[in-house]
């Protein structure tokens, strides 16, 4: 039981650090990175909480959270890059 508590403390500390970076982050990309990391760590936290409270159904919630976290990050990045989420950009993607 105490092993889950130790893991949860590490996870919550990481969450706090990610949130701090999200607040401090000078550029928009730091904030997206921090939110993405916060989402990943939340997936781990939900999984550990599921084990801590003896409810394995939490793992479904963790999986869905991971799916949504990834989709959200990609959507925000696409909006930032192309200005809108609608139609695919007409011109080919110029290589950097």
């Amino acid at each position: 039981m105490s092993m889950f508590a130790a893991a949860i403390i590490g996870v919550v500390v990481t969450m706090a650090m990610a949130l701090l970076r999200a607040l401090m982050g000078p550029t928009i990309y730091d904030r997206i990175l921090a939110v993405n990391t916060f989402g990943t760590v939340t997936v781990l936290a939900i999984s550990i909480f599921g084990f801590l409270m003896g409810r394995p159904e939490f793992l479904d919630i963790a999986l869905i959270y991971a799916l949504i976290n990834f989709a959200g990050t990609i959507a925000v990045l696409k909006f930032l890059r192309y200005g809108d989420l609608g139609r695919a950009s007409a011109e080919p993607d110029e290589d950097i």
């Binding site: 130790a6 893991a7 590490g10 996870v11 500390v13 401090m24 550029t27 730091d30 760590v41």
Partner: peptide
Amino acid sequence: WALLVAGALFCMAGGVGILRFPDVYTR
């Protein structure tokens, strides 16, 4: 127990790196 504690430590190490690195690429 060892894996969970090691995982928590790696999470925190990554968190510290996110805070202290100079720009978004290193973060």
